[in-house]
Structure formats: C-alpha cells, structure tokens
Amino acid sequence: MAVNKTSMLVLDCTDAQALAHFYAELLAGEIHIGEDPDLIEVVGGSGVRLAVRRDHGYAPPSWPRPEDALQAHLRILVGPEDLDEAEREAVSLGARPVDVDTEEGPREARLFSDPAGHSFTIAATGWTV
C-alpha cells in the first residue's frame, strides 16, 4: 500500500519572519507558526504551500552568475492580463527584478529575487488562476 505524501518547498534565510511576511503578502496567504519558530509555513490563497526556515549560517544564492546553476526557484502563475500588476506588487513588497533576458518586447515570464536572495518567476499561464 502506498503511503500518502505531500511536499513543501522550504527556503532558508536569515530572517524567517520577514521572508514569511513577504511571501504571505505576495501569495495572499496566511502565516502558520508551529512549535519551531525558525520554521514558518505560508499557505497561499489558492492552496500554495511553502515554508521558510531560519539558517544561522545562511548565504544568499549567487545565481545568475554563469558559474552557478539555478538550484531551485518558485514559479508563481498569473493570468496573462495580470502579469504587469503582479510584477508591480512583487517589487512593492521588496522583490528585486533580475533581468537576464536580452530580448526586446513583452515577456511572459519575469525573474526576481526575494528579499533573502532566492529567485522566483512570475509567469503568465493560459489556465484560470
């Protein structure tokens, strides 16, 4: 018999409270603090779940430098008509655009780093979000 499983992306950082608030605002979600105050879960309005964990020795990822590979990133999906607004919202919350695309014109996916340096993408999707 298979064991029921679920998974969650956990992002390490120096300030778990601050990063949890960033993602809770960005994902219109709620913060859940359990027994360990250094591990905080964020549950987004559409069921997205991720967690942030305080790491006392944390060093931010150095991607997109060519010598470093993108290890993992969060992809946030929005309707095509909401892409510009989602970008403005992310930046207003403290995200930093990471412009690695040299093509001119509109892009359907936009790369950012969160306040702790993790990369994430806001991308247009054809599905109903």
Rank of each mutant, 00 (worst) to 15 (best):
Phe120Gly: 01
Ala18Leu: 07
Ser46His: 15
Gly44Lys: 08
Lys5Pro: 02
Ala18Thr: 04
Gly34Cys: 08
Leu70Asp: 03
Val100Phe: 04
Ala90Tyr: 05
Met8Pro: 06
Gly44Arg: 03
Leu27Lys: 10
Val52Met: 09
Glu67Asp: 15
Ala72Arg: 09
Asn4Gly: 04
Pro64His: 12
Gly34Tyr: 05
Ala28Ile: 06
Phe22Thr: 03
Thr128Cys: 05
Leu19Tyr: 12
Thr6Ala: 14
Trp127Cys: 11
Leu74Tyr: 09
Pro106Gln: 07
Gln71Gly: 13
Pro80Asp: 05
Ile122Lys: 02
Pro115Leu: 09
Leu77His: 15
Gly105Met: 08
Leu27Tyr: 05
Pro61Trp: 00
Leu19Arg: 01
Gly105Ala: 01
Leu9Gly: 06
Asp101Ser: 11
Pro60Leu: 08
Glu81Leu: 10
Trp63Lys: 00
Thr128Leu: 06
Arg107Thr: 09
Tyr23Val: 03
Val10Ile: 15
Val42Asp: 05
Phe120Ser: 02
Arg53Pro: 01
Tyr23Gln: 04
Ala72Thr: 10
Arg65Lys: 13
Ala24Cys: 11
Arg54Gly: 10
Pro97Val: 10
Arg110Cys: 11
Lys5Arg: 14
Val100Ala: 02
Ala16Asn: 02
Gly47Ser: 06
Ser113Lys: 04
Glu104Leu: 13
Val100His: 03
Ile40Pro: 04
His118Ala: 05
Gly79Ser: 13
Ile31Ala: 06
Ala18Gln: 11
Leu9Gln: 15
Ser46Gly: 09
Arg65Trp: 13
Ala51Gly: 14
Glu81Asn: 07
Glu108Asn: 11
Gly57Ser: 05
Trp127Asn: 10
Leu26Trp: 12
Ser113Asn: 01
His32Leu: 10
Tyr23Asp: 04
Thr102Tyr: 11
Pro106Thr: 01
Trp127Gln: 13
Gln71Val: 12
Val42Lys: 04
Gln71Phe: 09
Gly45His: 15
Thr6Gln: 13
Gly105Gln: 03
Gly34Met: 08
Pro97Lys: 12
Pro115Ser: 08
